[in-house]
């Protein structure tokens, strides 16, 4: 169980990106995070694995205080939190398999990994994960030879290499063709349903939220606006979240 308590983040320039945000996520839940761009979704997700240092508040994960963890402890915690990014964030000049193996970096011997040496079992696991997302035959290509949809699958495979108990997905389909969005979302759904991994996924389109999420939270200008089942987002709530002029398409 993930508990976020009174989380706030003020950037160096004075921008207050999160304002006293509190919510809980149960293990195995698929939580959608919605809100306009600039509402603080990315900041929230990055505070959870502390790629961004929160200014105040507390994040507890299975009773462990993430916000108080030392650097070494944080690396151990991050191993169990996979992350998928809007722009995939692959190392595009490296091979696909190297990108996937990078998911094991927190587990393997740091000195051996520095020479790009991974245990045989990890290589097998990487090929398995690529197989699972359907691109095993691309394993030894350079990552930039792959299409956007394929790159995002590599991103998912990399996250799964961490054998995570939670995956943070920051608008994983926002830079993909809408027709590809469902295939990526289905992979995340599979991880969630089959492996019981908690998924926190920020999304733009409400139809995706309805289709895949168990629950949704909404941010507006850094503040929590809504927390509940996606079905509860009626027209009025929708306008509260997205503003008066928003047109509902999903």
């Amino acid at each position: 169980m993930l508990e976020v308590k009174n989380l706030s983040k003020t950037y160096d320039g004075g921008m207050q990106a999160l304002k006293n945000v509190s919510f809980n996520v149960k293990q195995g839940e698929f939580l959608a995070v919605i809100g306009l761009s600039g509402s603080g979704k990315s900041t929230l997700l990055r505070c959870i694995n502390r790629l961004i240092e929160p200014t105040s508040g507390q994040i507890l994960w299975d009773e462990q205080d993430i916000t108080a963890a030392s650097q070494d402890e944080m690396r151990h915690i991050r191993r169990k939190i996979g992350m998928v990014f809007q722009h995939f964030n692959l190392v595009t000049r490296s091979k696909v398999i190297t990108n996937v193996l990078a998911g094991r970096l927190g587990y393997v011997n740091p000195i051996l990994s520095a020479f790009n040496r991974f245990p045989q079992s990890d290589v097998a696991m990487a090929l398995d994960q690529l197989d699972r997302v359907g691109i095993k035959n691309q394993a030894y290509k350079r990552a930039d030879e792959l299409s956007g949809g394929q790159q995002q699958r590599v991103g998912i495979a990399r996250a799964m290499m961490q054998q995570p108990t939670m995956v943070l997905a920051d608008e994983p389909v926002a830079s993909l063709d809408p027709v590809l969005a469902h295939s990526i979302m289905q992979h995340l759904e599979k991880i969630n349903k089959e492996d019981g991994v908690t998924v926190l996924c920020s999304l733009h389109f409400l139809d995706l939220v309805h289709r895949y999420a168990d629950r949704a939270i909404a941010l507006k200008e850094g503040a929590l606006m809504f927390d509940g089942s996606p079905d509860k987002i009626d027209d009025q709530k929708f306008r509260e979240i997205y503003g008066k002029d928003a047109e509902r398409i999903g």
Binding site: L51, H76, I77, M83, F85, T92, A102, G103, L105, G106
Partner: peptide, 11 residues
């Protein structure tokens, strides 16, 4: 981006 992604794995 890639830097952030590698960091997020616990590297």
């Amino acid at each position: 981006g890639p830097l952030e992604a590698i960091q997020a794995t616990g590297a």
